[in-house]
Design a protein around this nucleic acid. Structure first.
Length: 574
DNA sequence: GCCGTTTTCGGCCCGACTGTTTTCAGTCG
């Protein structure tokens, strides 16, 4: 297990990195949380630590230039002053004082800023231990999991090890920041992201760029100042690899302009893809210097292949299909005609149905289905039966008004209906019959075994008012595995009963996975690409659902919401 | 401690269910 090194004592000579500053703020938050301190203060320090860790500019430099640190969100007067103290003195008196007062077993936790002291102290008490070493042993032996559950074990595992992966949407933000840094601070002339980010993989371990520059060694050197200081792990005349404080590694690949397209080919595909590709072409890097390939398309054409979209370069069947010229024509944003999963203030959304409708229209959509939560989901203010009846009538009126006042958007009557523990739906049939369609989801009893969970969903699908299965597996990427399911059996049943799936575009769900979406598509079951928007600002996340659909090889003809409503509506009547 | 189209104070989800950690913490959106 990789352990976090004590950073405090190793860096007096050089400037502090933003990550080191963030570690101290997070450590202070930890110690404050064990006291009777305002929990919002604790959160403020935690939030500031997270943001500081992601800054590209060096806080050390900014402090020494006497810049105003409150320009950064989450940093107010108090935390700005704490950061100044850390940079100028190398210490944070408040942190040291609290550490001195705390029990040694608590104080030692500040070396692991992602551990929640309260949870750890409970584990200590339960297992009768009092040190990180013992904690690590109990994790390895499985005692934490058996005594306190899988979630507790996961918390400890994540807290003790360095993060090395990141969700795609966060990696996108980091990619933008690094790209700007390379272009404006490092002397790069052109940069292009490649690797897993370009393939739109849902979780990112490495952010990779192809770079054109006159002086690569200077780029490599200057990149080490990213975020104050970023560790260079290895380098050569044409590449540099760094450990980003945010977790993933960063890889820079130098490339001269004539080889640009070849470098993109060599650096974008997965290892499995490249192995299959080079069995058909030649070793891509052996062609460097030929100057014969101005574009990626030219390369593929030379070897009798169709252009392969980056999202497909995973080593499934794309090489064979490129040879046969039968690659799918992948779905794009402009193919999407409407939203089929969105919430309003009727349940746990931030905006009214009318506001959501107007925003959807302004996003370019023809329709939006309002899928507020159903009555049982209390925490999300699930809509009671009587209120949904009212909402159905209100939407009828709204459509009339919208059509007279604001042409171009239709509001669909729907609901995100809970699939209850016994597989029944959370509204009576006579109410469901009034809806244009339903999204039905599991929000409870994640602990059922595979067979019980599967049969619960199959039973729900037997209801003629069941249309789309929402976030089919319930997974939260990097946080929670999905509930156990026999996905193939559910796909088979969906085909038989006329039900559909969604790809939920929430960047931490992306559920169906690309793999499951591929299976559903092969079975001939159509899929909605939905955002599950809880505000007018979230329609844009559809791009992540589209990424996922493209990775699954889906064409617009496989996507429910690529259809206009007059063609789509009848598919929902069983 | 931070923040502001509720702007210098009073907010910052939250509420019911689950399950074994037996009495409240974890969990779901």
């Amino acid at each position: 297990m990789g352990t976090r090194k004590e950073t405090q004592s190793t860096t007096q000579a050089s400037a502090l990195s933003n990550a080191e500053i963030a570690d101290r703020l997070a450590g202070l938050a930890q110690l404050l949380s064990t006291q009777k301190e305002n929990p919002y203060k604790v959160k403020a320090y935690q939030r500031a630590a997270v943001r500081v860790r992601l800054l590209s500019e060096s806080l050390d430099d900014l402090v020494k230039e006497d810049a105003d640190l409150t320009q950064f969100p989450g940093v107010g007067e108090a935390i700005a002053s704490a950061i100044r103290e850390i940079v100028l003195t190398g210490k944070l008196r408040k942190l040291d004082a609290l550490r001195g007062q705390a029990d040694p077993e608590v104080a030692s936790l500040t070396d692991y800023p992602r551990l929640d002291p309260k949870r750890i102290l409970r584990i200590y008490k339960k297992l009768k231990i009092n040190s990180i070493e013992a904690l690590s042993e109990k994790l390895e032996s499985g005692e934490i999991e058996s005594a306190l559950g899988r979630r507790a074990a996961q918390h400890v595992r994540q807290g003790l090890s360095e993060p090395h992966v990141m969700l795609l949407y966060r990696a996108d933000a980091l990619r933008d920041s690094i790209e700007e840094f390379l272009l404006t601070k490092c002397g790069a002339k052109a940069v292009q992201v490649v690797g897993a980010c370009r393939r739109r993989a849902e979780v990112i371990e490495e952010i990779a760029f192809v770079i054109e520059t006159d002086d690569f060694s200077s780029v490599v050197r200057r990149m080490q100042h990213y975020g104050g200081r970023t560790e260079l792990l290895e380098t050569s005349s044409h590449h540099g690899v760094y450990a980003l404080a945010a977790g993933p590694t960063l890889r820079l690949r130098h490339c001269s302009s004539p080889d640009w397209a070849l470098a993109l080919i060599a650096e974008t595909g997965s290892a499995a893809h490249l192995k299959k590709l080079e069995a058909v072409t030649e070793r891509v890097t052996s062609l460097f210097g030929s100057g014969a390939f101005p574009t990626e398309t030219a390369f593929y054409r030379k070897f009798g292949l169709e252009y392969i979209e980056p999202e497909l370069r995973e080593g499934h069947d794309e090489i064979e299909r490129a040879q046969q010229h039968t690659l799918p024509s992948l779905v794009r944003l402009k193919d999407i005609r409407g939203e089929l999963h969105a919430h309003s203030t009727s349940s746990d959304g931030s905006h009214s149905i009318e506001q959501m409708a107007i925003a959807a229209r302004d996003f370019g959509y023809e329709y939006i289905g309002m899928t507020d939560h159903s009555q049982s989901l209390k925490i999300a203010r699930g809509v009671p039966v009587a209120d949904l009846w009212k909402q159905v009538r209100a939407i009828d009126k709204l459509n009339d008004n919208l059509n007279s006042r604001l042409t171009g958007i239709q509001v669909l009557k729907s609901a995100e209906v809970d699939i209850l523990a016994d597989g029944t739906l959370d509204y009576p049939d006579e109410l469901l019959a009034e809806l244009d369609y339903t999204v039905c989801s599991v929000h409870s009893r994640f602990g059922f075994g595979k067979q019980e969970q599967t049969e619960r969903i199959l039973r729900a699908m037997d209801n003629r008012y069941f249309n789309i299965l929402g976030h089919a597996t319930g997974r939260l990427l990097l946080k929670r595995p999905g509930y156990e399911l026999d996905v193939e059996r559910i796909i088979h049943h969906a085909k038989k009963t006329g039900c559909f799936f969604e790809i939920n575009s929430s960047p931490d769900r992306l559920d169906l996975s690309a793999e499951n979406a591929r299976l559903a598509n092969e079975a001939g079951v159509k899929i909605a690409i939905s955002t599950d928007a809880h505000s007018t600002r979230e329609f844009g996340t559809v791009r992540y659902g589209i990424d996922q659909a493209r990775r699954a090889g889906l064409e617009p003809t496989s996507i429910l919401n690529c259809l206009p409503w007059p063609s789509l509506g009848p598919l929902f009547r069983r």
